[in-house]
Design a binder for these strands. Structure first.
Length: 507
RNA sequence: GCAGACGUAGCUCAGUUGGUUAGAGCGUCGGAUUGUGGCUCCGAAGGUCGGUGGUUCGAAUCCACUCGUCUGUACCA
């Protein structure tokens, strides 16, 4: 076998990414802003592990002892199935259930964490991504849902998304349940069809009214010519559902959501009651000053089909998001949630109603980058103390200088590569975007002085110098000062560089 | 999962009807320059042409399968 073939190929698993320093810093900043909002609302953090027993996640396939293919699962040494969490809600329900006697309800809690889904990755869609959740457990009232909606709105604004550029859409699963009954899709025998109808409605933002109508009827052909079977509803049913989900119908008539429903479904009792609940929520948020520009009833919101039992809500961005190629991309929601009254009961047998939402941190970050709201707080690279002499005495002096800079609060490092090639040290500094290089050879040392080189200014000067000899000998933007002036000189140069950055940023 | 498009150097891409030793630009590394970044010049490394099998005297090129990427779609807690 050749040497070549023995080499292991370094490769990243499909759908996973390495994160850069810039990404990590930007994420940290975002998380900080979100956390601040949640804390202000009186929520406390809690953290659960990445793995859970599969049965606690509720993800065994029906009629088998194997976990759902969509979750990453492994078998423990005692053969129990464990899975990586695919959201933060199911693990929270487990945590609350396990500690139900110690936890003071209503329990108001938040947490950020990585979640994992074993499905096809796409642009902006990964198999590991971060969510930032907040939940109120043990609060049955619509006022808890209202608070969640307001908190989502506040979070959007805390992240720099201006009012009017986002909206929180609210619906109630009971509305959809009632509607199914009203159009004759009640009963167990129609369960499958109801799911198809709900999925079709959920695609309003993707395909528009016409696309949804096709999916409710015969079906729809996609761009590659592949055909998706529809729900096979009749024309009257389709018309009713179309009227239901066409937001313009009631927003423009300034009718209330409930009136809108009563009009279409002839005051069907279940629909009407659920509509009234949404009316209550809207009234609650409006009396707190959150108008229809921020929180709005929206009958096409469906969310997950698994565990939501009442209110569902979703944060949507209203500005165009373009990708790297400059194409406008369908962005969809950046967060959502709802009421899950049955999740804790599965473990405890007790009725513990809960409501909460989740923000897709990675997705939202992509959008913020687009909006230019992602403060890529360019962390200034370290000051580089170069190495002219490699003997232990000299190295000790360089270390001392670096420590002095650090103690003065200046990010600094000593060159750790091959010091014998001095040109490489400055090349390293240049590529790292170091602001300043410190140089002390034996000449300077004996004179009790150091060279301080402003690399940013030097770069600017380089544009005017074309021959290398001049470039090397002129030592652009470099000054020699007494050793004991090192810190104050470095500070002064850094300050003037910062001033320059501010000035150019303002232009 | 289904449908379609595409896989040539680290990156972006040439490569003629199937015909010598598969090229370019950028990047990387070394040198010109042992104590000064950029520019310029010189040089080098880097390829199982995604993989396997087939057709052929001969395959990066044609065929089959397979893997991967992208696009749409399905599913998505």
């Amino acid at each position: 076998m050749s040497k070549k073939q023995q080499k292991l190929k370094a490769r990243l698993p499909r759908g996973f990414v390495d994160r850069s320093a810039e990404d990590i810093r930007a994420t940290d900043e975002m998380l900080g802003k979100i956390r601040k909002v949640y804390e202000r609302y009186g929520f406390d953090p809690v953290e659960t592990p990445a793995f859970e027993y599969t049965d606690c996640l509720g993800k065994f396939l029906p009629d088998t002892d194997r976990p759902n293919a969509g979750v990453f699962s492994v078998q423990d040494d005692d053969e129990q199935w464990m899975s990586l969490r695919y959201d933060l809600t199911a693990p929270l329900a487990r945590h609350v259930s396990e500690n139900i006697n110690e936890i003071q309800l209503p329990y108001r809690t938040y947490r950020a964490g990585w979640v994992f889904r074993n499905e096809k990755p796409g642009p902006g869609r990964f198999r590991q991504f971060m969510q930032f959740d907040a939940d109120t457990v043990g609060a049955p009232g619509v006022q808890a849902d209202a608070e969640m909606c307001m908190m989502m709105a506040d979070t959007m604004e805390a992240l720099g998304i201006p009012r009017g550029q986002y909206v929180i859409r609210v619906n109630n699963r009971k509305v959809l349940d009632g509607v199914m009954e009203a159009i004759g899709l009640g009963g167990d025998e129609n369960a499958e069809r109801r799911l198809t109808v709900l999925r079709a409605i959920d695609k309003l933002d993707k395909f528009g009214i016409e696309g949804v109508r096709l999916l409710l009827g015969e079906g729809r052909k996609d761009e590659s010519g592949d055909f998706t079977r529809g729900a096979g509803l009749g024309a009257i049913q389709i018309d009713m559902l179309t009227k239901l989900i066409d937001d313009q119908n009631y927003e423009n008539d300034s009718k209330s959501f409930k009136d809108h429903l009563d009009y279409i479904f002839d005051s069907h009792p279940a629909v009407s009651a659920a509509g009234a609940e949404i009316g209550d929520l809207v009234k609650l948020v409006q009396s707190a000053g959150y108008g229809i520009d921020r929180i709005v009833a929206s009958p096409s919101i469906v969310r997950g089909l698994e565990y939501y039992t009442g209110m569902v809500y979703e944060a949507e961005l209203l500005f165009d998001v373009t990708n790297e190629k400059g194409e406008v991309v369908q962005f969809g929601s950046v967060g959502g949630g709802g009421r899950y009254d049955g999740l804790v009961k599965r473990f405890t047998g007790r009725d513990v109603p809960a409501t909460g939402f989740s923000i897709g941190v990675s997705r939202l970050m992509t959008a913020l980058k687009n909006l230019g709201k992602l403060n890529t707080v360019n962390v200034v690279a370290p000051v580089l103390v170069t190495v002219m002499d490699g003997d232990t005495d000299a190295l000790g002096r360089y270390q001392k200088m670096v420590q002095a800079l650090r103690q003065a609060g200046i990010r600094a490092e000593m060159y750790q590569g091959n010091w014998k090639k001095f040109g490489n040290q400055l090349k390293y500094a240049d590529r790292r975007n170091c602001p300043i290089a410190i140089i002390q050879g034996s000449d300077e040392f004996e004179a009790g002085e150091v060279q301080i080189k402003d690399l940013i200014e030097g770069k600017r000067l380089s544009e005017e110098i074309t021959d290398n000899v001049t470039w090397r000998e002129s030592r652009p933007a470099q000054i020699q000062v007494a050793q004991n002036k090192l810190i104050e000189t470095v500070k002064a140069i850094l300050a003037s560089q910062a001033e320059d950055r501010r000035r150019t940023a303002a232009i």
